[in-house]
């Protein structure tokens, strides 16, 4: 922090990643694998939101997947029942998630620690239950058809869209965490009372953390919806949240970039092992437990730190 040097390594690293992502479609011609990669970017983004909220602000929530669903369904249902243009629906979806995040944030001022995780897990199930039950409105378990972004069956534009969304979102979250917000989030995570006694407006920054995370979940959700062109309540089940949390943890919760990379790589790996059926999730679960027990900071975060010579 002393002499602020130019972060050469970091710039090289991120340029390499962006370049790799941009060139990948040249090497991968199969539209199946492009779809898989785009999906992996979605998981990378949601895993990063989880890292943002838990790893930095210290708020353990199971609600991310519900916020993804809320944004997706908001945009999808508006498309179904109104003639609103796509762009507006996307904004509405993200705003809706932010709004719900605001409410959860406000409630979490009362629910600390494990109570928050209990509340959010119940909340996530409630969202799924409602979508399932109100099938006359939401199409229920049969799924809701959603319009796509592009008038093409090619996966290439979707690939770039999801990749761009991931890169931009990570960059924005990264800047937020490098600003005084990140400092306050971590102070709150460490000791709310002390932070408050030192002038940090704990209420405001806690709610900020929730709203920001929720909005990025919303971003992931609307783009997922219009990329996948189909939404079903099953996607919002706790298993999906388990995958997301597992990806962030195996990557490294306390490092946004590592968590995102964990999401991308693991989702890609899971798809690659598709033939194993549910067994790959057994392996995933076992890996999660072993990493937790023996590599508390994840597998990628320590590597990242070594490479960069500093934490985020």
């Amino acid at each position: 922090m002393k002499a602020r040097h130019f972060p050469v390594r970091k710039i090289l690293f991120f340029s390499a990643i962006v370049l790799l992502g941009a060139l990948l479609p040249l090497a991968v011609s199969s539209s199946y694998w492009l779809h898989v990669l785009a999906m992996a970017y979605f998981y990378g983004l949601v895993a990063a939101t989880w890292s943002f909220l838990d790893g930095y602000a210290g708020q353990f929530s199971f609600g991310n997947i519900a916020l993804v669903m809320i944004a997706g369904y908001t945009s999808g249902l508006l498309g179904e029942y109104t003639g609103l243009p796509l762009l507006l629906r996307i904004v509405a979806g993200i705003a809706m998630s932010g709004l719900v995040g605001l409410v959860i944030g406000a409630l979490c001022l009362r629910f600390k620690g494990a109570y928050l995780s209990l509340f959010t897990i119940a909340f996530a199930e409630a969202v799924r239950l409602i979508i399932n039950t109100e099938h006359r409105f939401t199409r229920g378990p049969c799924g809701l058809r959603v319009d796509g972004f592009f008038d093409t069956t090619s996966q290439v534009p979707y690939y770039y869209l999801m990749f761009g969304i991931l890169v931009v979102s990570i960059f924005v979250m990264y800047r937020m965490l490098r600003s005084k917000w990140g400092l306050f989030f971590r102070a709150i995570r460490e000791d709310e009372d002390a932070a408050s006694a030192l002038g940090v407006n704990v209420v405001r920054y806690k709610i900020t953390a929730f709203v920001v995370t929720s909005m990025f979940c919303g971003v992931a959700g609307v783009f997922y919806a219009h990329f996948n062109r189909m939404l079903a309540p099953n996607f919002g089940q706790i298993t999906t949240m388990g995958l997301i949390i597992g990806m962030a943890v195996i990557g490294g919760v306390e490092n946004l970039v590592a968590a995102a990379m964990g999401g991308v790589l693991l989702q890609f790996g899971l798809e690659g092992l598709r033939d194993l059926g549910a067994w790959r999730l057994v392996v995933f679960g076992a890996l999660l437990m072993i990493v937790l027990r023996f590599a508390r900071n994840g597998l990628l975060a320590p590597l990242y730190r070594k490479l960069m010579g500093e934490e985020l």
Binding site: F60, A114, A278, L281, V282, G285, L288, L292
Partner: peptide
């Protein structure tokens, strides 16, 4: 022996639940 024990406790029991569910499914 673990850092951030509160978070660990939630994660490890949740991890077990994920593991068992998929094990039985398999």
């Amino acid at each position: 022996a673990v850092n951030r024990p509160a978070e660990y406790a939630i994660l490890i029991t949740f991890g077990l639940s994920f593991f068992l569910q998929n094990l039985v499914l398999s």
